[in-house]
Design a protein around this nucleic acid. Structure first.
Lengths: 150, 150
DNA sequence: TTACACCCCGTACCTCGGTACGGAGTCAAG
DNA sequence: CTTGACTCCGTACCGAGGTACGGGGTGTAA
């Protein structure tokens, strides 16, 4: 099953055919080889790449940033200082995102735990693991409805 | 120093004045009280809310989703089943994002670790590290979000 | 060979999340 | 009082990230 069509690729990655062509135009996907007819021929690797793009989008990276990430991943000479620097910067970006997500998660699980009245569901290890490296204070609200901006 | 102007609010949260008004129109920020002159008067709480919106955006939530998150946070009766359900669903969303981010992070740090010195770039396992993270649908909503060995 | 789904390309169009006017009133300093 | 920064509101416009034609060619199974 080497060489799949654009339709099969799109389906495998859960996107539309038009989107695949759009990504190609934007440079996120390389132009694949073509059949005599002009039909694009993809391999399984393209599926992974496409899935990666979608996941990266879900966590807030722009297509431009995703291009950078893919470039890092594909760079044939990863020892170059600038590549390492960009990779390190991306790691920092990711850490910031994870911190923010975990802060949000903590708020929500606190909400759930408190309002379920059912015991400490907030002993989730990942929360405690990351919690105290967070620098930003966060408005943790409980069930008490002391709300209302006024 | 209660009651800050829209300009001070915007500056405090690192956004533009127009953006604040835009969020108000969209329902992400409540319409604040006004002075006689019609000038909006915000309090410190609004700063937090605005910062939260920005952080949520950075990790890929849409304004609509952020509205939901804020609604959960502000809900005066968090014991209602549907509220808890939506909160749990958001936690699941967050977990999925965190998983994806940690997978990306792992790939990048592997790149950094491996390619730091003087090994040939072709040995860099980042390419293989990316390639098969089994993409399961995210249906779980508990604290166990086994990152797995990836 | 005819039918029907799939692919080609280009262009137009759409939503989301803002940004930028522009003409008016407000407020604090000088 | 004047000046300049800030605010009001409405409307127009913008870039990102797609989505939808439309008119053609292709591939395959009955």
């Amino acid at each position: 099953m080497r060489a799949i069509s654009i339709g099969q690729l799109a389906k495998a990655a859960g996107v539309g055919v038009e989107t695949v062509r759009f990504y190609e135009r934007k440079g996120l996907l390389d132009a694949p080889p073509r059949k005599e007819s002009g039909y694009r021929q993809y391999d399984a690797d393209a599926v992974e790449r496409l899935k990666f793009i979608r996941r990266a989008q879900l966590v807030g990276f722009t297509l431009k940033e995703i291009q950078d990430l893919l470039a890092l991943r594909d760079d044939p000479d990863a020892r170059r200082a600038d590549v390492r620097e960009r990779a390190a910067a991306k790691v920092a970006d990711i850490d910031a995102k994870v911190r923010d997500l975990l802060a949000m998660r903590a708020s929500l699980t606190t909400l759930l735990a408190t309002c379920e009245g059912d015991g400490p569901a907030s002993d989730c290890p990942i929360i405690t693991a990351f919690r105290d490296e967070g620098r930003n204070e966060h408005t943790e609200r409980s069930c008490e409805h002391g709300e209302g901006e006024d």
